[in-house]
Computed example of a mutant assay.
Amino acid sequence: MPPPDLAEIGVLALVCSVPVVLFGALIIRLARSWSLAVSMVVLVLIPVVATFTGVLGASGFMITETFEKIALVLIIVSVVTMPAAVIFARYQARRTVWEQEIRDAERYAEQSRRKLVAFVSHDLRTPLAGIRAVAEAIADGLVSEHEVREHAKHIEQESIRLSEMVDDLFEMSKINAGAVTPSSTLVALDEVVDDVVSAHRIAAERSGVDLQASLPAAPVKVLGSDRALVRVLSNLVANAIAHTPSGGTVKLALGSDERGAWARVDDTGVGIDDADLARVFDVAYRGSNGRVPRTDSSLPSGSGLGLAIAAGLVQAHHGTLSAHNLDTGARFEVRLPLAASA
């Protein structure tokens, strides 16, 4: 029997290898739940097995010395390439996750940037317009001499409000850029609470709100920045006072348990609408239920960034900040890891 020519060898190789490739493609298509590593191993095995069957078919299904050599080579190739495929697949999976995380971070940063720009264009415009109108009225002689002092006071109040907004914007931009790195000094939270209560005592009295503090017998200590933690609790207390009607109470309590240190700000105000709870820490959040009306215009009205800044600073301290409604009013709770020496 004469040996087959090249055309016959090619046809036999195709007939034997093509079904293997088609079957492998079907397996890959159906096995969508497989991990990337398993899929890569299958992708390596498909051409190896297809080559093996093609060579076997081309040899007329006879185990010759040449076929044994080719089979040995294919086995060695499989042993080498399959572990490499698993390693490359795992690397590719990690890189895909990293790239997705980077894209998500960039998307979030862009959204935050747009929110900040929208906030600046809206909220900074109002006090600037007020200052300009009053200044023009004084310059044009439309304000009597005995009214100048009153209008000057208004300009001062609006200037202070602008300064606070700019400070908040700067702090928020650092948080969004991931540039907040609090120091790792030992901070006594009871001293932080004392500072916050002292800073807001007058504003609470002018609002008709009873500001209370509850401290444990033993100091509660954490690692972090006392300045940043003062700002966190200060923002929460200011927010609580702004949402509590005259005659109400704002209570700042401190303690610790097996989960770490905690600080709670409770108020007897209007609470938080259920629809707003999920986004209460978003940039420029003010809520849909409105603030408690204030007759004193010198009281802080809030920049809309206070809660977002507080959440960012707490996260930088490896803690959590949560909010939920009480039977009357709302509670904001800060959780921080206790210092090892506490």
Rank of each mutant, 00 (worst) to 15 (best):
T66W: 06
V148D: 00
L189W: 04
L233P: 10
L142W: 04
N325K: 00
G269N: 09
D190Q: 12
D266K: 06
A89G: 11
S322E: 13
A188L: 09
A84M: 15
I160V: 12
P127E: 02
I272E: 09
A188W: 08
G24D: 06
D273F: 04
A342H: 15
V270Q: 13
D140G: 02
S183Y: 04
D5C: 03
S288I: 11
T249C: 11
A139V: 13
K69H: 10
A275K: 08
T53F: 04
F170P: 00
A118T: 09
R113P: 01
N176K: 15
I131F: 01
V192I: 15
A323I: 02
L45Q: 06
A339E: 12
F88M: 13
L72C: 02
S298C: 01
G260W: 01
A133K: 11
V143I: 14
V80L: 13
D140Q: 15
L215S: 03
P19Y: 04
S297Q: 03
V97N: 08
A31T: 07
F67A: 11
R29H: 15
D194G: 11
V250Q: 03
V38W: 02
T268G: 04
R206P: 02
G255M: 06
L72E: 12
A139E: 12
R95N: 07
L236T: 07
G248M: 08
S78L: 15
P127R: 00
G57Y: 00
L14P: 03
S322H: 02
L252Q: 06
I27G: 02
A213F: 05
H317T: 10
G54S: 05
K221L: 13
R29Y: 14
G178F: 04
V49F: 07
G130T: 09
N239K: 03
V237G: 05
V196H: 08
L277P: 03
L215T: 04
